[in-house]
Amino acid sequence: MIDGLRQLLTFRLSEESYGISLDAVQEIRSYTEPTKLRSAPTYMSGVIELRGAMVPVVDLRAAFSMRPARITNQSVIVVLLVGDRNVGLLIDQVDDVADVGPGQERAVPGMVHLVDTMCLQSIVATNDRMILVVDHLRLVEKLGVLTALTKAHDQLEAA
């Protein structure tokens, strides 16, 4: 946070703008095909290797029940720190870093098009767009990403 401003990494899924706390972002990686895991949930694209660790990759489009996207040269994996683990989010494209001042964030209405509001923290209104702010901790918990990763890891160990 800089002088009372909160910073969000903003990105796109389809035509919608989303944001996630910049504090949670470890790195932004060019898209590489994740290794698929047997019996992984449909929202999990697979895993990537990052400095010797297995990182689950969540396809945010699938997690938000959106139509699958075609992977392009703008598709990236945003690696987040969740507790002591890394989790990757597959997104369509990164926009920028937005500085959000006090009073710009609004509560999420009871119904927001295409998104499970349980994973949204707030909505930010800027001059040119509305940004749906994702609560990454709630998202990972709700989807059971770390539980699914542990199960997949146990299956690999048993094989």
Score class of each variant (00 low, 15 high):
V82W: 11
V87N: 07
N73V: 08
D59Q: 03
I48A: 02
V87K: 10
D92Y: 15
I91F: 09
T72N: 13
G52Q: 02
A53G: 04
D59N: 15
M66P: 00
Q74P: 03
G52N: 05
S75K: 02
A62H: 02
V57F: 03
A63F: 08
L50P: 02
M54I: 14
Q74I: 00
F64L: 13
A62F: 04
G83T: 01
A62G: 00
L80P: 06
M66L: 15
S75G: 07
N86E: 15
R51C: 09
A63Y: 00
M66N: 01
L90G: 09
V76N: 08
M66K: 10
D84H: 14
V57G: 14
V47S: 08
L89M: 10
M66Y: 02
D84C: 06
V79D: 07
L50R: 07
V78C: 05
I48P: 03
D59A: 10
A53F: 13
R85D: 13
G88D: 06
A69G: 14
A63C: 05
V76I: 10
Q74R: 15
S65D: 13
V47N: 00
G88A: 07
R51F: 09
M66Q: 12
T72V: 03
M54K: 04
I77K: 06
N73K: 08
V87I: 14
R85A: 10
L60V: 05
D59W: 00
V58Q: 02
L80K: 10
A62N: 02
L80Q: 09
I48W: 00
L50D: 12
L50H: 11
D92I: 12
D84F: 05
T72W: 12
V82D: 14
L89P: 01
M66W: 01
V55H: 00
P56Y: 03
P68N: 06
A62T: 01
L80H: 05
R51Y: 04
Q74C: 06
D92R: 13
V78G: 06
G83M: 05
T72C: 11
V76H: 11
G83F: 03
N73F: 08
I71F: 02
R85Q: 15
I77L: 14
I91Y: 14
R85W: 05
P56I: 11
F64Q: 12
S75D: 02
R70F: 08
N73I: 03
I77H: 03
L81C: 06
L80G: 03
G52P: 07
L60Y: 06
A63P: 00
V87Y: 12
D59T: 01
A69V: 00
M54S: 14
L80T: 05
P56D: 05
F64G: 02
G83E: 15
D84Q: 15
R51H: 11
T72G: 12
Q74Y: 06
V78R: 01
N86R: 13
L60E: 10
L90D: 09
S65A: 12
N86V: 00
P68R: 10
R85L: 05
A63G: 00
I91S: 08
D84K: 12
V78A: 06
N73L: 10
P68L: 01
V57E: 11
E49N: 14
D92V: 09
E49T: 12
T72H: 12
L89S: 01
R67F: 04
I91Q: 10
V79F: 08
G46L: 09
A53M: 11
V57M: 13
R67K: 14
L90F: 08
N73T: 09
A62E: 11
L90I: 01
R85F: 07
L80V: 03
T72A: 06
Q74G: 07
P56A: 06
